Simulated assay, not measured.
Amino acid sequence: MVLLDIRNLTLELETSQGLIRAVDRVSLSLREGEIRGLVGESGSGKSLIAKAIVAVLNQRWRIKADRFHWRGEDLLQLPFDQQRRIIGRDIAMIYQEPSKCLDPTATIAEQLHESIPTDGLPGNWWSKGRHKRKKAIALLHKVGIKEHQAVLDSYPYQLSEGVCQKVMIAMAIAKSPKLLIADEPTTALEASTQAQLFRLMGSLNQLKGMSVLLISNELDSIARYTHRLSVLYCGQLVESGDTARVLAQPLHPYTDALIKSVPEFQPDLPPKKPLFALPGSIPTLQHLPVGCRLGPRCPNARKECVHTPVLERKQHHYFSCHFPLQYKESR
């Protein structure tokens, strides 16, 4: 069953200079029980897409899409209250900066208790608080926090960024959502804890069928955990498909550059040889190139690249490029 089905999502920001198109006709689908990776450089629009899914973008943003379905319902056509009810029930998100997302005026215990749904807790109404406390402790243990008493009694500003991130993850999985969106979930964590949390999300996916949208700018950190992968560049979807196939046979020059920049994917690279990197840097939203946005940095760019490429399909492998790599079929 398809949980999330988005077609040609466009996000535009209202500014004093006019509308700026930050996300340009991106399509994304996510099946039940799937772990989907969303990867790209900082500023490629990954977090904006996640915030559009959970409807937390402010009024300056204009959201347009040919289709924005959650389990068959078009969220953009629903009243805001009904939209928020569905999202609050079925979707949870781990934000990139946890210390800014937690309430500084409430203890961790108060915030974690609030995120635990009352439905399903055993006992009568007067014992719900005790059962919430037990579940809160169990959730903290699950994300790797052993000193639960000290953390529960603390305010967010008293905790490190890493501990706040773990608390955010505990709050996100408290209601057992059907979709967990993890936006750079391991940024502030040490390597051993990163592996633990990836294993936790993997077990939730396997045992409870929880779908996961895993967002990162580090291809190597999410490639081993995802079933399918979508690659974004500067607000445009450049490639999408099964993770193993995308890594083995990239069709877009940007995906190929990402793979070549990771030492793990270059076992034959001689010692001390520089890793491959595209020239230049990602453009700002105020100065976006016309057509293919990778054009000024692309080693294969030609005059046709001033026109925006359409998303094409080769079996279950999607790409958006006028001159794809390793693709010799006539078109």
Rank of each mutant, 00 (worst) to 15 (best):
K51P: 00
V54Y: 00
L3Y: 02
D81Q: 15
K208H: 14
L275A: 06
I94C: 03
K260P: 00
V306K: 12
I87W: 00
V262Y: 07
R331Q: 11
Q249G: 08
Q158S: 09
A92T: 11
P250S: 06
I94G: 02
L30E: 02
I91P: 00
P253Y: 08
L121D: 12
I35F: 08
P274V: 03
H252E: 05
Q158A: 09
G202A: 01
N124F: 12
G88F: 04
D242V: 12
L112Q: 02
V151C: 09
R85Y: 13
R21G: 08
R71A: 07
W61F: 05
P270F: 14
I259K: 00
P274M: 05
R36Y: 03
I181G: 00
P185L: 02
H287N: 15
V167P: 00
R245Y: 02
S47N: 06
M1E: 03
A223R: 04
L57K: 00
L57M: 11
S281D: 15
T105G: 13
P279F: 09
F319R: 01
S203Y: 14
A172M: 07
R84D: 08
A136Q: 11
Q236G: 13
A55F: 00
L140A: 05
Y327D: 09
A257F: 06
H322N: 13
D66C: 06
